[in-house]
């Protein structure tokens, strides 16, 4: 129950941050990626603010042996720079540039009630399921795909 309430509060705060920062407007995100056009650095300010707080906050948590309400910190263990990481990031970047949506802002934008956003999110879920399905079937032959992920 505490974990669920934490999730709700964290999601709400995260969503507010995305809306206020302009990241829920695809035009703003694509403006950041459009370095040869009317470049909009807003996304840099979001990253700077987000990383500054998270970096300092995580440092405070490092000496702690476990989170307040769970038995351990669930941190990614993979360290290898492998093909799935590079290919995945590149594929994600292409989709991100095409539509101006990454997963967070897309989910938040569902609240606008626009069918187009629902279509994007459903397509995204299909893409995720495809990879999860492929990975579950090829775990033995492709160990790098089964590596602990940064989630």
């Amino acid at each position: 129950m505490r974990g669920t309430l934490t999730g709700l509060l964290a999601g709400f705060l995260f969503g507010l941050g995305l809306c206020l920062s302009g990241m829920t407007s695809p035009a703003v995100v694509q403006g950041f990626l459009d370095v040869a056009g009317a470049w909009n650095p807003a996304l840099l300010f979001v990253m700077a603010g987000g990383v500054a707080v998270t970096f300092v906050g995580y440092r405070f948590l490092v000496p702690k042996s476990k989170p307040l309400w769970a038995s351990r910190f669930s941190l990614p263990t993979a360290t290898r720079i492998d093909t799935p990481l590079l290919a995945g990031a590149a594929i994600f970047g292409i989709g991100w540039g095409l539509a101006g949506y990454c997963p967070g802002p897309a989910v938040v934008s569902l609240a606008s009630g626009r069918i187009a956003v629902v279509v994007f999110v459903l397509s995204m879920l299909v893409g995720m399921i495809l990879v999860r399905w492929m990975r579950s079937g090829s775990r033995a032959s492709m160990p790098s795909l089964a590596a602990e992920e940064n989630r």
Binding site: F14, G17, V46, M47
Partner: peptide, 23 residues
């Protein structure tokens, strides 16, 4: 506003890690 939004996102990330240990 972008920086303030970023700070809120960061606060959310720290909160989630501190309480539940999740990314």
């Amino acid at each position: 506003l972008a920086a303030i939004g970023g700070v809120m996102i960061g606060t959310s990330a720290v909160l989630l890690m501190a309480l539940t240990g999740c990314i």
